[in-house]
Amino acid sequence: MYKDKKINVVFLIKGLVLFFLFFSCKKHEYPPQFSKAQFTLQVKADNSMLEWDTVKYQNAAGNKYAIHTLNLYISNIVMKTSDNQKYISKKIFYLDPSISSKNYFSIDSIPLGEYTEISFYLGIDSTRNKIFALPATTDNLNMAWPDIMGGGYHFIKLEGYYIDTINVKRGFAVHLGKNTNLASIKISHPMSQKTANQKYVLAFDVNEVFTNPYIYNFNIDNNYTMADAGAMLKIKTNISDAFKIYENN
């Protein structure tokens, strides 16, 4: 009996030792090979943070204006290294910078490395710019561009008020849509994806929409662009350099 007890204790001790050996070994952690980048949209006017609903900004044409609404889509993001390695995200992001939960977007599975350029569409590419191609959310439905006018979605809605030639406050609605007005944005800026989660500011300067190369005047070029192909082309051309990237420290 004594011998049986001794054998049982030995078995128990061996079992406990094995148990602790199994669970105490530290897992060998491998460094991450992919990272995430979060971009927060910051709206500016003349390099200052935009104050919504405030008639204090003046574009190059001399129109004093305020911004009331800004909704846009960003899609097909490409990050490029100096030796032309590319990371591509085909996701489509809806942004409304007046709402904190809708003023940023993230892309993940980005290979670690040093990137020198980012490009994206302001809008939705033609293969997906079709009504009901996006999930039927309230935001997406509110951005619908009628089929009879080209279909798909508004790429951007920029609305507000300006002071016209007879000093009356009047509305403006700068809407871009239709595949021919898809704006391609390219920004050269170092982006170091060296940790799991990098954060950037994507700054959008509203005044640039009305400045370069076309000096856009609401009184002359139209305060309402949607049915005006010429006006939309000017805005599309100007908007290509309205964006900048900064590290978000």
Binding site: H68, T69, E159, G160, Y161, R170, G171, A173, N223, Y224
Partner: peptide, 16 residues
């Protein structure tokens, strides 16, 4: 009727 907050969508040229 015109006012300073008339919606921008309602202010198309020739349709104000």
């Amino acid at each position: 009727k015109q006012s300073s907050t008339l919606d921008p969508i309602m202010t198309k040229p020739s349709k104000i």
